[in-house]
Amino acid sequence: MSGWIVQRWLKLDQNQRFLLLTAPVTLFLILFFVVPLIAILVVSFWRTESYQLIVDWNIDNYIDVLTEPSYRVFLLRSIVTALIVSVTCVALAWPIAYFVIRYGGRYKLLLVLGLAVPFLTGIVLRVIALQGVLGPIGLLNLGLMKIGIEPIQALMYTKTATAVGLIYLYLPFVTTAIYLSLLNFNFRLLDAAKVFGAGNFRAFWEITWPLNWVGTVIGFALTFVPSLASAVTPRFLGGANGTLFGLAMGSQFSATGTWSLGAAMGVVLFFVSGITLFTISRIVNLKRSGFTGVGSRD
C-alpha cells in the first residue's frame, strides 16, 4: 500500500515521531488559542476609558483585581463554591458510575447515555426549569404547602441554589470520567483482597480508590475549573449576595465595557485554577494508580 511512508516512519526516533504527530494539533492550538490569548494578555495591561481601549501600559488592572475587597470576596466565594461543587459531584458520581459498571450488565452504555440526555436542553432552559421546580412558587414548594409544611426558602437566590445548579450542570462530566476509568478496572482484584481478609471498606479504600485516582482527579478538574469561571448559573440562581468571580468578570465585557480589567481578571483566574489543580495533581501517585508507563519500550 503506502509502503514507503511506513519505511520513513520507522526510521524516525521517538522525539521526531512525537513532534510529527502532534504538529497539526499544536499548529491548530497556536493559531486559534495562543494568538488570540496574547491579544487578551496585551489588553490586560492597557486601560479603558469611556468604552475606548487606550494603549497605556500599566498594571493598574492587576492591582485593582488583587487588592479591591469586593473582588477578593468574589474570588474567595468562587473558590469555596467550586470546591464544594466539585467534591459533591465526585461523591455523587462515584456510586452512580460504580452501579452502572457493576450491575448495569448489557445496559451500561444506555444508563450512561441516559444521564447525558438532559443536557441537550441547554443551560438556560434547565436553569429556568430548575427555578420552576425549586422556586418560591415552584412545584416542590407548592407540594409542600399542600401537605402543610413551610416552603423551603433556601432553594432560590442563595449560594446553595448556585451550588445545586452547578452540580446539576457538571455531574455528567465527572460520571463519564469515573465510568471510563472503572471500565478497565479489574474487579477480580477485589475478590483477591477479600480472600486475603480485607473487609469491604478496606478493599475499596486500598484497591478501587487508588487505581481509579486518575479518573477521579480528572473528573474533579473538569468540574472545578468551569465552576470557578461560571457566570450564567450564579446570575440566575445566586441572588444579590451570590455574585461569583466569573459573573463579575463577564460583566466587565458586557455591562461596564472595561475590557482591560476583565482581561486582567481572566489572567488571575487562569493562575488561580492552574495553581489549585497543580497542587491537587501532586498528590496523585502515578505508579499506584496503575499507570502502565509511557511508551511501548521498557
Binding site: F33, I40, L222, S273
Partner: peptide, 16 residues
C-alpha cells in the same frame, strides 16, 4: 485551554 474562561476565549477570538 481548560484554565481559560469561556468569556476570554470568545472575546479573544472576536478580537482576532
Amino acid at each position: 485551554p481548560l484554565f481559560v474562561a469561556d468569556v476570554l476565549l470568545g472575546i479573544s477570538t472576536l478580537i482576532l
